[in-house]
Design a protein around this nucleic acid. Structure first.
Lengths: 63, 63
DNA sequence: ACAAATTGTAAAATATTCTTGACAAATTAT
DNA sequence: ATAATTTGTCAAGAATATTTTACAATTTGT
């Protein structure tokens, strides 16, 4: 299932997948895969994404 | 850095590392490594641990 | 309509999580 | 004090997250 909260939070900051990936230090495909949802990222990556988007783990990754 | 919140939450449920590992479906060493802190678990595992201990991601894995 | 940027997706290679088996140190119970 | 349970740790292998390269589909800007 897609992670639409992540997609929305990224859009709210006007960041492309590429731009977010750069800031977080991963590739665009990794961000894409996480948003797509068929993926199980590490928590450190999740935390890095959250910090960059000004959100918490619960806000972006808790159901 | 150690994850003492996880250790405390597990103690609060009176679960050994082994018992928690069994319920979550991983090995004892994996739980040990996460509590020890020199580790970067996947978010699905973190979520499974949280659910088993009645906590949220922010409560156990957010700084 | 056209160009540029963004997104979706895939296969192969690399890095890291997680498992398995094992043993010693420390704690808890009797 | 002894046994039983729990915890800390290590090395090698299996499983999977992430990278790299690449190309097509979609969206955005002019």
């Amino acid at each position: 299932m897609k992670n639409l909260r992540l997609k929305a939070a990224r859009a709210a900051q006007d960041l492309s997948q590429q731009a977010l990936a750069d800031r977080v230090g991963v590739t665009r495909q990794t961000i894409n895969a996480i948003e797509k949802g068929d993926y199980n990222p590490t928590i450190n990556l999740c935390i890095a994404i959250c910090k960059e988007l000004g959100k918490t783990l619960d806000e972006l990754f808790w159901e």
